[in-house]
Amino acid sequence: MSTKIRLAGAAVLALAAFLLVLRPWQGEGTTTLTASTATYAVRLSVDRPRSGANTFDIEVEGRNGGTTPDQVSLEPVMPQMGHAYPPVTASPLGAGRFRAAGAVLPMPGMWRITVTVSGTNGTEQAVFPLVVK
């Protein structure tokens, strides 16, 4: 078997394994992802991520004595296609809860959602991978 065929087979297997890992994120209900920064624990939720406008709910808790942030924004990027969209400022809902409405994901595929959290502890970012059908 040639090296090219082996490499192609390995690439197909790697892609299949990658898609199996992502499969739970492609459900029909709410997708919830979590990440941590040095100061914050961040939870990102979106109901049925899809092409077009989406509303993201963001919960932020201070870690290690950190306080909740004053401002949160969300920026969608699709690195594979070179798409980057302006940040959407999230509206505060109270007690570390925010909502970013109208974030546009114009096509299906793998997106990188960057949540920027700013407060008295400075500015930090949490990055979330999100598959859109």
Rank of each mutant, 00 (worst) to 15 (best):
A38L: 15
M110Y: 03
K4T: 09
Y40H: 14
G109K: 02
G62P: 01
A101H: 15
A11Q: 05
Y40A: 02
Q125R: 01
A35P: 01
T32H: 04
Q80D: 04
V131H: 00
V115T: 06
N54I: 12
M81T: 13
Y85W: 14
V104E: 09
G66S: 13
V12M: 01
M107S: 10
D57E: 14
I58T: 04
R50H: 13
Q125D: 13
T37Y: 06
T55R: 15
K133E: 15
G27Q: 11
G66T: 00
M110Q: 10
K4S: 06
A17Y: 03
A90D: 08
G96M: 10
T39F: 13
A35E: 06
T68E: 13
H83C: 00
V12L: 04
E61M: 10
D57Q: 14
T34E: 00
S118D: 09
T32Y: 06
V46C: 08
T120P: 10
T39C: 11
V115S: 02
D57P: 02
T120K: 14
V77A: 04
S2Q: 08
G9K: 01
P49G: 01
S36C: 12
E61N: 11
T123I: 03
V117L: 01
R23E: 13
T34I: 06
A90E: 11
S118Q: 09
E28N: 12
R48T: 08
T3G: 02
P87R: 08
T31I: 11
V12H: 00
G96I: 09
V77E: 04
P24Q: 03
A103E: 05
T3H: 11
Q71P: 04
S2A: 07
A14Q: 01
P87Q: 09
T31S: 13
Y40W: 15
H83E: 05
P129E: 04
F128L: 03
G109M: 05
V21Y: 07
G52H: 07
R43P: 05
R50P: 03
V127Q: 02
E28Y: 11
L15R: 07
R43M: 02
R63D: 02
V12F: 04
R97V: 05
G94D: 13
T89N: 12
L44C: 03
G52N: 10
Q71E: 07
L44S: 01
Q71N: 11
A90V: 12
V131G: 03
V60W: 00
S118A: 14
A8V: 02
A14G: 03
G27C: 08
V127S: 00
N64I: 13
Q80G: 09
P106L: 08
M1G: 10
Q26F: 07
T67G: 13
V72F: 03
Y85G: 11
G52A: 12
R97K: 15
L13S: 08
V117A: 01
G9N: 05
A53H: 15
P92V: 06
M107N: 13
A11S: 09
P79C: 05
E59I: 14
F18E: 12
L130T: 00
Q125L: 02
F128G: 00
S45F: 10
S73A: 08
Y85L: 15
A53I: 14
